[in-house]
Amino acid sequence: MIEDSSKFEITDELKSKIEKILDNHYHDFTQIVGILLDVQDEIPQHYIPKAAAFYIAEKLPLKLSVIYDCITFYDALNEEPRGRYPIEICDSVACKVNDNDFLLGSLKELLGIDFGTVTYDGRFTIEKVSCFGACDRAPAVRINKTVYGPLKTKEQVRKLLEQFV
């Protein structure tokens, strides 16, 4: 199971990383979306722990409710921990009509997980996302900002996953 996000404790190391991110954004609270994206990149499970959100709210002239709103509004920001290699599968029409169901099935079968669960080693999660603008490579997945596709056979999927071993 995915670890419990409320147990996350903020380390001094992470604090100083967050400080640095805030510096890069000139402590400008209007850049909160960019700040949160950067903080998320610093966390191996690609999410924003509650403690980090509280920390940012304390460091910026910004209310926690605004930060929480952003985290829950934007798809690219995550409230819950994910795999170290979250596999985002495009669920747009272009991918659907190119049999992304088969791709999804292959992923589930090869990894032995479903949506909302993580592989035993904490490496992979599978998530459905809206079109990420790679319809010319349908059906496609995106892992840590890189698009892979078209993935039409189970063999292609297996090869892809092996890259992350």
Partner: peptide, 8 residues
């Protein structure tokens, strides 16, 4: 340069 965060 500003980044979106996944919202059509």
């Amino acid at each position: 340069l500003y980044s979106g965060a996944g919202a059509y």
